[in-house]
Design a protein around this nucleic acid. Sequence first.
DNA 1: TTCCAGTTGCAAATCATTTGCAATTGATTC
DNA 2: GAATCAATTGCAAATGATTTGCAACTGGAA
Lengths: 151, 151
Amino acid sequence: MNKKAHHHHGAARLCDLTERLRRKSRRVTGPRQAILDILRRHPHPLTNKEVFFEMTKGDCDLATVYRSMRLLETMGMVKRFDFGDGVARYELVPDGDDGHHHHLICVHCSEIVEVQECFPMELEQQIAAKNGFKQITHKLEFFGICPRCQL
Amino acid sequence: MNKKAHHHHGAARLCDLTERLRRKSRRVTGPRQAILDILRRHPHPLTNKEVFFEMTKGDCDLATVYRSMRLLETMGMVKRFDFGDGVARYELVPDGDDGHHHHLICVHCSEIVEVQECFPMELEQQIAAKNGFKQITHKLEFFGICPRCQL
DNA sequence: TTCCAGTTGCAAATCATTTGCAATTGATTC
DNA sequence: GAATCAATTGCAAATGATTTGCAACTGGAA
């Protein structure tokens, strides 16, 4: 199994995810399992509301989705992405990975494609060095018009 | 005067800015002049609230700052930046420019440095071609720890 | 089974931003 | 310079995302 396989959407088993909660001595509750299960079955970043509406009625309160997502984010189990529309989106982070990657978003229909390409590391190092910054990272998202919307 | 000079902060004269409003048959009002004047004297992206509090008491209402900023944005006179903290920031765009550039933000003290480096165009073209997208652009911001905060 | 800190539901609070509407005001016309 | 009128503004209330106070509830350790 190569490294790429870890990135396959839906690859993570729910029990492995809840195990990660246990390792950090966090409780494995119904709402958290429901959220993790929804995230692991979705290939793209989801908003808290989207996660909430994916739930079979009454799994938990919307506030709990927000609270859980924030917990999962601080634990490093999900990563937050901002597409500039004022709504936070979250994606599951593979175990032992930092989840760093980018997206290409259609400005017409909002279709989202995962992008493997990244900002060149040497160039980033140059920017860090030139300005004396340390521990530099970046947020990067691409926007354009998808094939279907070009018709 | 080379191209670079156009990017010098504070280089734009207020009368040239208001002239741009006139060219698009927008009214040159007190609030708009105050906002443009504050933006042209500030080297970095400002939030609407920051612009509002920079005003000498009672130049205008906060709602007017929001409305004006949105107007200026659709006119292409200011560009909006998102640093992932849920607050929009705006910078004046030099005339005849699209204002495309990036920032390096200190995660400790929020110091902002303007970054000239950009995502490599060939790589962006590859990403566009590979996914069949057209008119591709990107949002890119860097985060790290500034020299002062490293002490 | 008991126990208790961690969680949750619910409602209210916060924060950024937008909007309805009546009053005001640039800029054009006379 | 005065009349005119649509664009603009102030103010308050609405919206939308997200957070929080608090009492009730529940994993999971003992």
